[in-house]
Simulated scan of single mutants.
Amino acid sequence: MRYEKGRKDASRSRIMEVATQRFRGDGIAASGLASIMSDAGLTNGAFYPHFPSKAALVRECVAAALEGQSGQIAQALASGGLATAVDAYLSAQHRDNPGTGCASAALLPEIAREQPETRQLYTERLMTLVRQVSAALPPHTSDPEAVAFGIFATLIGALQLARAVEGADLSDRILAAGADAARSMAQPRGGAGQEPAETGVTIAAKTERER
C-alpha cells in the first residue's frame, strides 16, 4: 500500500519523537524497535520504509536532539546569558525529566559504543554547542573553546551525579555545586590591573575570614 508523502513524513516524525524520548529515558540498548513502534502507534513493518536500521534511527535521533539543544542554548543565552543557560541545565526539572533532556547526559556511555558514523555526527553537533558557549564567554578569555569544554563537562557530570544519587537533598546540593563551578569558569580571569572574579566559594571563604 502506498501512502501520500505527508502521511509518510508524519509517521517518520512520530517514530523519531518516540525513539528520542525512549533512548534518553531508558537507554539505547533497552529500547527495542518493537516497543518504539508500538508507542508510535505503528506496526513493526512500518519501520523499514523510514530507516534502514536501528543504528540509523539512533544517529538521526541524536542529531535531532543536539540540534534542539542548540536552539535552547541560543534562547537562554539571548535572554540571560551563560548564567541563565547554566541554571536551566542544572535545574530540578531537567534532572527529573531525562526523556526530554540533554542527550549527552543520558546517553554518553552508549554513544561511545555506537558506530563511527554516529560518533562523528555527535562530535560535529557537540562542537556546534561548544562554539555557541565559547562565543558567549567574556572578551579576552584565554582559549574559549577549552573553557567551554570544561563548562560542558561540569554540567553533564553534575547532572549525571544528581540523577544517580539517592535523596533529594544531596541531589539538589550536587546541582547547586555544579552550577557554581560552571559559572565560576565563565567569569573573567584576573589579569594585570584586574581582580579575579569572586565565586560562591570564594565569597563564602572571604566572609568566614572576616568573622
Rank of each mutant, 00 (worst) to 15 (best):
S142A: 15
K206H: 12
A103L: 10
L77K: 08
T43Q: 14
T199V: 04
N44P: 07
R22G: 00
Q132N: 04
V62T: 06
F23R: 02
S70Y: 06
R22S: 00
D172T: 14
A19Q: 02
I36V: 13
R14Y: 05
I28C: 04
A105Y: 00
L175H: 00
C102N: 11
G27I: 01
Q69F: 07
R211G: 12
K206E: 09
A168I: 08
V147C: 11
R95Q: 05
E60L: 10
L161D: 09
K8R: 15
S104M: 15
A204L: 08
V165R: 09
A135K: 10
G27P: 02
L175M: 06
R163H: 06
S13V: 01
T207V: 13
Q120Y: 05
Y3R: 12
R125W: 00
A92I: 13
E145I: 07
Q69W: 05
F152R: 11
R2W: 02
V165F: 12
R14F: 03
Q75E: 15
A78K: 13
E67V: 10
I28H: 00
D96T: 09
S38N: 13
Q21K: 12
L155D: 00
A103D: 04
G27S: 08
A10S: 12
T207M: 14
G150V: 01
A181D: 06
G68C: 11
E17C: 01
D143V: 06
A158E: 04
A64N: 09
I36F: 00
G178M: 02
S35Y: 00
A112C: 08
V58L: 05
R24L: 08
F47V: 02
A197R: 00
I15V: 06
E110W: 06
S184K: 11
V58P: 00
S13W: 04
R125N: 03
A74S: 14
E117L: 11
S31H: 05
N44D: 11
A135M: 07
V165C: 08
G25F: 05
T141H: 06
H140R: 15
A192R: 13
E195R: 15
Q160T: 14
A85E: 02
R113H: 10
E166K: 13
Q69N: 09
E117H: 06
T202A: 06
M127Q: 14
R113Q: 14
Q160G: 10
I15N: 02
L107P: 04
E210R: 15
R209L: 15
A56Y: 02
A29H: 11
H94T: 13
Q75I: 08
Q120N: 12
A34E: 15
L33Q: 01
T128H: 13
P188C: 07
A10W: 02
A158L: 07
E210W: 03
T43P: 01
D39C: 04
A103H: 03
Q187S: 14
Y3D: 04
L137E: 02
L107S: 01
F152N: 05
A55T: 11
T141L: 09
D96C: 08
G193Y: 03
M127D: 15
L57Q: 01
